[in-house]
């Protein structure tokens, strides 16, 4: 007899898993496809046990063919199904790029709304784990710059569950960035709701920490770095508000503007390269929308404009750190 006591709190990966199982159960037209997702249960185990439960026709082990994964998912979606297409690593999404930006993203537009494509393309993303160039990317800007796609990136277990459920019910294609370094992180575990109660609407940011002196806007792993930075900033006598965007497209400008009306300072943090990255987009949009509120030039902390290298000192150098955020925040606060 097992003596293990079931923990009430659950990790990020469990949040994703519960979302998929619940949606597979309630939507018989939901199909999952990807590399190694069936027999193996996914490279990270996100789809563990799903093929045994729902069969190989609904949980499809695909060849190493990202174009075929996305393209076939598109065909199924146009013919009455909802599809969850897994990219084994979000880095590999480049191999399915044409199908995503030219076929899927535009389908609703070019058919004047006749053919919306309900599908979610999801996969593990982000650095900080020694994944090197091709297992560390945050390439969300490619898709934010392709009209017709929603882009989502959860940072907590309950958001992972709630946003994935909402994405799987959305009639539009959603590119869903999961942060693999958060998959099994104990310190962010939390209790999860079930069914419809767990839903988190797309397009709504969340204030993760209230503050009065500046607003840190972030998503993914840098959201947690921003929370740590906020604690350090207390030591310097500054109170930082931290916003988790959760959805990049559509962007919740309102929540950020409201925050800036109180804090008057904006620092955006993400782990994508700087040039044409989404941090720049937030800066541009909010500089215009909240100009009257700003007391200091809005700033960003991002990855450097380099690939993500492998060796630890190299990787640490190019990715944003808590210290980088604190340093940039102090500049803003003392402006």
């Amino acid at each position: 007899m097992s003596t293990a006591v079931e923990r009430k709190t659950k990790n990020y990966l469990t949040g994703l898993k519960e979302a998929m199982y619940e949606e597979m159960e309630s939507n018989p037209d939901l199909i999952c496809m990807g590399e190694d997702i069936g027999l193996l249960g996914g490279a990270f185990g996100v789809t563990d046990g799903m093929q045994a439960k729902y069969g190989a026709e609904r949980v499809i082990d695909m060849p190493i063919s990202e174009s075929a994964i996305v393209g076939a998912a598109c065909g199924m979606a146009l013919n009455g199904k909802t599809v969850m297409a897994e990219m084994q690593f979000i880095d590999f999404i480049s191999c399915g790029f044409d199908q995503i930006v030219n076929m899927v993203a535009t389908y609703c537009y070019r058919t004047a709304g006749e053919v919306p494509i309900p599908m979610v393309i999801r996969g593990p993303a982000g650095g900080y784990g020694g994944g090197a160039l091709y297992h560390s990317q945050m390439n969300e800007a490619w898709f934010c710059n392709s009209p017709g796609l929603k882009v989502v990136c959860p940072s907590t277990p309950s958001d992972a569950k709630g946003l994935l459920k909402a994405a799987l019910r959305d009639p539009n294609p959603v590119v869903f960035y999961e942060i693999k370094e958060l998959y099994r992180k104990r310190s962010i575990e939390e209790e999860l709701l079930d069914g419809d109660d767990a839903l988190i609407p797309l397009g709504k940011a969340r204030v993760g920490r209230e503050g009065t002196d500046l607003t840190l806007v972030s998503y993914g792993n840098p959201y947690h770095l921003s929370l740590s930075a906020a604690k350090k900033l207390e030591e310097f006598g500054f109170s930082a508000e931290v916003i988790d965007l959760r959805t990049l497209v559509p962007l919740d400008e309102e929540t950020i503007t409201e925050s800036l009306s109180r804090t008057n300072r904006l620092l955006v943090v993400n782990e994508a390269p700087m040039t044409c990255g989404f941090a720049g987009e937030v800066l541009a949009r909010l500089s215009q929308a909240a100009f009257e509120h700003l007391d200091a030039p809005p700033a960003r902390v991002t990855r450097t404009d380099t690939p993500v290298p492998w060796a630890t000192p190299l990787e640490s150098d190019v990715l944003p750190s808590v210290d980088d955020i604190v340093e940039a925040a102090l500049k803003l606060c003392r402006y």
């Binding site: 199909i31 063919s65 174009s67 075929a68 996305v70 393209g71 076939a72 998912a73 598109c74 065909g75 199924m76 979606a77 146009l78 013919n79 009455g80 199904k81 044409d98 199908q99 030219n102 076929m103 535009t106 389908y107 070019r110 058919t111 053919v115």
Partner: peptide, 19 residues
């Protein structure tokens, strides 16, 4: 519907008849 990216409809067609 096709795009200008040739052969791009073949995976889509496969998905349509799979469904």
């Amino acid at each position: 519907h096709s795009t200008s990216m040739l052969a791009g409809t073949i995976p889509v067609a496969a998905g349509v008849v799979y469904a």
